[in-house]
Design a protein around this nucleic acid. Structure first.
Length: 149
DNA sequence: GCCAACGTTGGC
DNA sequence: GCCAACGTTGGC
């Protein structure tokens, strides 16, 4: 799950404890959101900063229709959506743990663009899947960094 | 339905 | 700040 820290950082999530991943208006990203289930873990990625990369772990605690689509005052308002037939789906996530930055540079050294969608040039999705094998390797990397610090 | 123009994202 | 890579929009 990717966010610009200037807009919403991992520290913001740590402070809030939970957040709704609202405002995603890309169909491919929405389809990934639909696949997410309560209990799923996700990495939090900081984008559009000097040192982009993974900064921690979050967990899905609920799946829901994106509430902003029903709010006429929201920039994400979707007049065609109704509570019975919402167009945009999302999840609520909770803070799990912070780990020392796994930089984009490190990720590129360790993984290919086939393995990690976030490494692909021109990638613009706010949510993207990571296969289990790669996820476990990243977790191992995170744990070794925690052990070092 | 095609596609040029435009706006946005995000690495560098 | 630049610019490549997208997605979206809208004229036709």
């Amino acid at each position: 799950m990717k966010s610009e820290p200037k807009i919403y950082s991992f520290d913001d999530l740590k402070r809030d404890r939970e957040t709704v991943w609202d405002g995603v208006r890309n169909y491919q990203a929405r389809n990934f959101l639909r696949q997410m289930q309560v209990g799923d873990l996700a990495f939090f990625y900081h984008s559009n900063i000097a040192f982009p990369g993974l900064v921690g772990l979050v967990r899905v605690v609920a799946t829901l229709a994106d509430p902003t689509q029903f709010d006429p005052n929201s920039r994400y308002y979707e007049p065609k959506s109704t509570p019975e037939c919402p167009r945009w789906q999302t999840v609520r996530v909770e803070f799990v743990e912070t780990f020392p930055l796994i930089s984009r540079e490190t990720l590129k050294q360790e993984f290919s663009t086939e393995e990690l969608i976030v490494l692909r040039q021109g990638n613009r999705l706010s949510v993207m899947p990571v296969v289990e094998k790669v996820a476990l390797q990243i977790l191992a990397l995170a744990n070794s960094k925690i052990a070092q610090s």
